[in-house]
């Protein structure tokens, strides 16, 4: 097939130099989860909470009247709140690197406890010194998350170069990567896959559906993502998270990148 050899040679390399170089994430223009500035919020206006389909924005009584709550673990980045807010308390942003280890870090916290930066978990370091093998399970997604996972192997993102591989067999897998809000019919196959994995094993909830159900949780056929089904080591909200956000989360899990979000606050 000489034409394809020539084709390949002529096309040259497409792989981004990410991570490392600035502005090489290939996500120019892509909107992330909304930025929240509660001090701008006007009293008595509930516009954002009323338009938030998955209930990421809530209202609770505070010391001086009502107060907004925000859980990025439920946010589907629909951007509606940024469009209805009259005071710019919610704003469109390019903040998409939202992978976190603790569920609480996705919930907006008024005062940020100053915690030590990422403590390196030695266990992970030892286990993954060389490479990471992932078994993916679609537990009831819209296929948006799969589409971005499939993109990880295209020449731009080229996941292999980071020593991260998808494996067909759970027996060789270190990480169970789950998408979708977990339908009644996928619950058992999901648990079987988990149980077939050797220890130590980790679980990543990829996409808002897998974290909390997002727009598709509950109802007559779905659970609320992995809540109450499996212990989760890494939460990656987004609907879907873009490929760079997925890579970032994988690297955070491997302690090869720093987490960007703490108590719902995004730190560059």
């Amino acid at each position: 097939m000489p034409i394809w050899t020539l084709f390949g040679l002529k096309r040259g390399m497409a792989t981004s130099s990410w991570p490392g170089k600035e502005d090489a994430n290939l996500q120019t223009g892509v909107l992330g989860l909304p930025q929240f500035q509660p001090d701008r919020c006007q009293d008595g206006c509930r516009a954002c909470a009323e338009c938030c389909l998955p209930g990421a924005i809530g209202i609770e009584p505070g010391p001086s009247g009502e107060r907004l709550t925000l859980d990025y673990g439920k946010c589907i980045a629909c951007q509606l709140c940024t469009e209805v807010c009259p005071a710019d308390a919610f704003r469109k942003s390019n903040d998409w690197a939202f992978g976190v280890r603790n569920r609480e870090d996705l919930v907006w916290a008024e005062a940020l406890a100053s915690r030590p930066a990422q403590e390196l978990t030695e266990k992970i370091q030892q286990c993954f010194r060389r490479s990471l093998h992932i078994r993916h399970v679609d537990a009831g997604s819209c296929n948006g998350c799969e589409s971005e996972l499939q993109a990880l192997n295209n020449p731009y993102y080229n996941l292999h170069r980071l020593g991260i591989f998808f494996t067909p067999s759970p027996r060789f897998a270190d990480l169970l990567l789950v998408t979708g809000s977990v339908t009644y019919a996928m619950r058992e196959p999901l648990l079987e896959t988990y149980n077939a994995m050797p220890e130590p094993r980790w679980v990543m909830a990829m996409g808002t559906c897998a974290i909390s159900g997002g727009a598709t949780g509950g109802g007559y056929s779905c659970a609320h993502g992995l809540e109450g089904i499996l212990p989760v080591d890494m939460y990656v909200p987004g609907c879907p998270p873009n490929p760079a956000a997925m890579i970032h989360a994988l690297l955070v899990l491997l302690n090869r990148a720093a987490q960007s979000v703490q108590g719902g606050h995004y730190v560059q």
Binding site: G140, G180, T183, A185, M186, P189, T216, G219, Y220, S221
Partner: peptide, 9 residues
């Protein structure tokens, strides 16, 4: 397997 009951939603 992936029936999410979307129409009901």
């Amino acid at each position: 397997f992936k029936h999410r009951g979307m129409e009901k939603r």
